[in-house]
Amino acid sequence: MTQSVSSIPDDRQEPPEQDVPATDSDSWGGLETLPGHPLIWILILSELVVFGAFLLGFSGARVKDPTGFAISQMQLDRVVGGINTMVLLTSGLCAVFATRAIRLGTVGHCRGWLLLTALLGLVFLGVKIVEYKAKIDAGISMETNSFFTLYFLITGFHALHVVMGLGILGIVALRPLAVNIETGVAFWHMIDLIWVLVFPVVYLVR
């Protein structure tokens, strides 16, 4: 006789409840060993993927029109781009000192270094605005050609991150716990990291 499915006794048992509740450190797969909140590292990875795709897309578009890209790239000021890179690198150094200061318990010094970091970020944005204005005054816009579409898209998206970074630095300066400072500073280093990849691809390689 065939036994119906519903009449088969269920030998399966519910798994016993764990005595020890899962903690944050159990669920981040090693990210908890890195400075700052683990979520910032997921953001850093995501941003690297997004900007990596932009840069590979830029290089792919360049293969289709290398002459057009080279002529358009001549409109960019490589030296100014290089100076802006140095400005961001120096702001990153100040951010390291801000983290060091909070670890040493000197909140005042930490805020001072964060202020210097933010000021250098503002210098970067100022130079970017001057650069954009020069392009617009020369009649160049996003619609000019593929190079400038990608140029404004990539550098504009990066500049937007700088603006967000300035806001984050301001917030963590108001609540200077070590984890907050490390997280805010990690976001700032990510901005730095992305720019050192954007600069050679957009400004230098032709």
Partner: peptide, 12 residues
Amino acid sequence: ILQYYLGLGQSG
């Protein structure tokens, strides 16, 4: 930047 500023050198 990853290794020394972001502290990735301490990770796995």
